[in-house]
Amino acid sequence: MNDMTLTEKPVNASDIKITARNVQVYYGTTHAIKDVDVDIPDRTVTAFIGPSGCGKSTFLRCLNRMNDTISICRVTGNIALDGQDIYDKRVDPVQLRAKVGMVFQKPNPFPKSIYDNVAYGPKIHGMTRSRAELDEVVEGCLRRAALWNEVKDRLHAPGTGLSGGQQQRLCIARAIATSPEVLLMDEPCSALDPIATAQVEELIDELRSQFSVVIVTHSMQQAARVSQRTAFFHLGNLVEYGETGHIFTNPSDPRTESYITGRIG
């Protein structure tokens, strides 16, 4: 039912992929996210920045309902993907997460082979009809994650045996194997060394051609390097959201300016 063919969509940054309105998140009695409104465009890298504990990761996890796995977490408000409310009762989070993939802070390859790591998503979602097709998907994803040349001779070695940067690229390959429309990345480089970080950043920039990428990062330089749009969170509020260049050069809110100049953080 899924044709693995290239269907070029026109790159148009004004296409809105995700709209969030009036989002509140509570952890037990803690009000973690307050009144967040945001529009995330398609085929763009959007960066969430802010000091630790500002709620940027929490908000990111709302976008594919990963917060459902935490029993004390409660989300209200409206988040829509292509205009459809993802918190609607009819939505199966399992299907949603196939469309909105996620890459985590610490590389978390499964203790399986490299091949099985990438093949896991397509297998559970039944995306391929034959072994050959699956092989093709795995190879394609590994290539797009710029990992193919490094691992093509040891596809059946355990994924946990790779270096940190390779592991994270494996996780990215694993995430794009379900052909998502949005890719959420929660500080994907925080556990990596500078060289691996540069490789992953390069990869993110390439992924922009097909996905809407949302990245949470601690590093403002990274946000400036990879993103086109930036949102600044502070104490659970979305303080400022706009063109990355604009936010970094001419922030309109004093809190943003303090953060960018290093006075809070």
């Binding site: 594919n64 990963m66 796995t69 989070p93 399992v94 299907q95 949603l96 997460r97 196939a98 469309k99 993939g101 996620m102 890459v103 985590f104 610490k106 978390n108 390859p109 499964f110 203790p111 896991y120 998503g121 559970i124 979602h125 996780c171 694993r174 995430a175 379900t178 959420l184």
Partner: peptide, 20 residues
């Protein structure tokens, strides 16, 4: 993080349990 990785790919709980 193993569970998160699997749920993040859209696996159900039982798939996560059985396969990861």
């Amino acid at each position: 993080s193993m569970r998160d990785g699997s749920y993040g790919l859209g696996a159900t709980k039982s798939e996560t349990v059985k396969q990861v």
